[in-house]
């Protein structure tokens, strides 16, 4: 517990919460933009539309948000060359875990904020569709899981790289690949961890170019994929942790 307080104290006056907050504001503005000319039909499918569109925005924004978050928290140790001193006071493994928990805390704040965006948008734009709480919960859990796996990657990269250009580059490239993965066959997208922000969509979309009508259909929750991805996340964390522990300071 002391280690966690130390981690939190390192982030004091750094306004670390500002980054997720600004991303949330932009997400809200985007949502406002898409609903500005909504007619009665759009309002009747307001939440459905959001459950479909917000994960797509996450695919683009989250890899960069998480790389920024991890880089800010890890770079303070790299810039300050504090690791040698830290390891005389703290277990290397405990440092690695607590730093990660600290990053996850901001991911959790972002997840909660994003889930609150749904009822907020619904109130502001007077959606006539009722908000499904199980779907909202599912959205939050999926976002947190997909974010955590990407955070594991960004965390190890930010700690291993002296120069933060590499983790940020990977974050940008990941956002790119995640976006483009939507055009790939589903089997191919499964190998890209950045594609998972959009892999658990509750709705699919069909667009008829002739009538220019967009229609949504429900998709079952891929429970096997979800468990598989969670297990992959745990294994990936352990592998990354062991790589970090073996690295000479």
């Amino acid at each position: 517990m002391t280690g966690l307080f130390v981690e939190l104290k390192k982030g004091r006056h750094k306004k670390l919460w500002l980054v997720p907050l600004i991303f949330l504001i932009v997400l809200f503005l985007w949502s406002a933009y898409t609903h500005q000319n909504a007619d009665a039909e759009d309002l009747a499918a307001g939440y459905t539309n959001m459950f479909y569109q917000v994960p797509l925005m996450n695919t683009m924004l989250m890899p960069v948000l998480l790389s920024v978050l991890a880089s800010r928290l890890c770079d303070m140790e790299i810039k300050g060359q504090t690791l040698k001193l830290l390891y005389t006071l703290q277990q290397k493994g405990s440092f690695y875990d607590l730093k990660f928990v600290h990053e996850c805390f901001y991911l959790l704040l972002f997840t909660i904020g994003e889930c609150l965006l749904f009822p907020l948008s619904g109130k502001l734009y007077h959606f006539t569709e009722p908000l499904s709480l199980p779907l909202l919960l599912r959205h939050g859990v999926v976002l947190f899981l997909a974010g955590t796996v990407i955070l594991i990657l960004q965390h190890i990269l930010s700690l291993l790289c002296q120069n933060q250009i590499a983790p940020l580059f990977i974050g940008l490239a990941g956002a790119f690949l995640g976006l483009f993965s939507m055009f790939f066959p589903p089997a191919l997208t499964r190998v890209l961890p950045w594609s998972y922000f959009g892999a658990f969509l509750p709705y699919g979309m069909e667009y008829d170019p002739a009538t220019r009508i967009m229609s949504f259909y429900e998709l079952p929750f891929p429970i096997g994929l979800f468990i598989g991805y969670a297990v992959f996340g745990i294994v990936f964390y352990l592998v990354c942790r062991s790589i970090f522990l073996k690295k000479e300071v």
């Binding site: 980054v19 600004i22 932009v26 503005l29 985007w30 790389s67 920024v68 800010r72 940020l168």
Partner: peptide
Amino acid sequence: RSFALPIGFALLGSVMGLVISG
């Protein structure tokens, strides 16, 4: 002084850019 923050701002600026250009 942060390396990462301006990059995050650039991405957000671009998203806003798409909205504003509409």
